[in-house]
């Protein structure tokens, strides 16, 4: 088991290099570079930048060098100094930009994940155990509604309701007075006050699909003979449900951790933009559009690292909960 984990860790290193290089190439692929975009932006506001100035800019950013050199410099900086390079657009070190956003993204994602699981798993189990009951039909309708309503629409409606009927400041994760304030207890309360709206919006659609998945998993497990065995043993219905079929029905969820982590960054872009959330997704989108390649590259690298870490975690967890995998 330990050998397996060590081996997986070692494999992550070449994978990370490969993916980061690929990401770098992909970001560079569209014609032009950041300076082109920058010049075009200036031109639209009637500022003319001559060729010399553009070339100077390119030299300053190192954009005139061959791609492989740019990549090597960038990755060398990350490995040796933890320096992800400079964001052209923000004129700030990338590392300074992303960590706070990543932290907020993490908070939002973890809270909505917990809310999702807390609602969806019990309902899924209930729906399976009381298949075709009124409750099951009710939850099924709710799930399909949740699945079919686009989350940006829900975001707009809830924002309207919150602003008009509850008079809450909507959009963002902080009130204006706390936006740039240092962390304090008041800021934390303010965050909690704002967090519920995006959490609800993000949780609704994933709750809906999770209910369906949990229901289907449970329906697969419930007729299995080992459930009958447990019942014949005299266990109470609740206890046997929790101990046997539920335990096995949860296994597929552990596998999903692998893609939950990267979703932290790249998921929920539309909702984050609609709600003006200071999370990673809108910044990633903006950096890609501006060909701000070090910033975008840093995000892609993070997504990739999180995917690898996520699949490692889910493999380890799966091995822990399922002896069939552990003892293979």
């Amino acid at each position: 088991m330990l050998r397996f984990i060590a081996k997986r860790f070692l494999w992550m290193i070449p994978s990370l290099f490969a993916v980061s290089f690929l990401a770098f190439v992909l970001i560079q692929l569209p014609p032009g570079d950041y300076v082109t975009t920058y010049v075009a932006t200036l031109a639209s506001s009637n500022e003319i930048v001559d060729q010399n100035a553009a070339a100077q800019l390119r030299e300053r950013f190192g954009l005139d060098q061959p791609m492989i050199v740019q990549y090597s410099k960038w990755i060398w900086g990350i490995v040796t100094r933890g320096d992800f390079g400079l964001s052209f657009e923000w004129q700030q070190p990338v590392s300074g930009l992303i960590w706070e956003r990543m932290a907020l993204t993490l908070v939002l994602a973890v809270v909505s994940l917990l809310v999702t699981w807390a609602i969806a798993l019990p309902i899924g189990v209930y729906s399976a155990v009381r298949k075709y009951s009124i409750g099951d039909y009710g939850f099924t309708i709710f799930s399909f509604l949740g699945l079919s309503i686009p989350s940006f629409l829900l975001a707009l409606v809830l924002m309207y309701v919150a602003a008009v009927h509850f008079g809450q400041s909507v959009g963002g994760l902080f009130s204006p007075e706390y936006e740039n304030a240092p962390w304090s207890f008041g800021k934390l309360l303010d965050l909690l006050h704002h967090l519920w709206l995006p959490v609800i919006i993000l949780a609704v659609s994933s709750t809906a699909s999770l209910i369906r998945v949990m229901r289907a998993n449970m329906l697969d497990e419930l007729p299995k003979p080992y459930v009958t065995t447990a019942r014949a043993k005299g266990l109470s219905e609740l206890r046997l449900l929790l101990k046997y079929p539920m335990r096995i029905a949860l296994n597929p969820f552990i596998s999903t951790i692998a893609w939950l982590l990267p979703n932290l960054i790249s998921g929920s872009v539309v909702v984050a933009i609609v709600l003006n959330l200071p999370t990673a997704a809108p910044m990633l989108l903006q950096s890609l559009m501006a060909q701000d390649m070090y910033l975008a590259g840093a995000f892609v690298l993070l997504i990739c690292a999180l995917t690898l870490i996520g699949s490692l975690i889910s493999d380890i967890l799966l091995a822990l909960v399922d002896p069939r995998i552990r003892l293979e």
Partner: peptide, 9 residues
């Protein structure tokens, strides 16, 4: 085989 739980000893 299937009458015993696969994930409990």
């Amino acid at each position: 085989m299937s009458s015993l739980s696969p994930v409990h000893t």
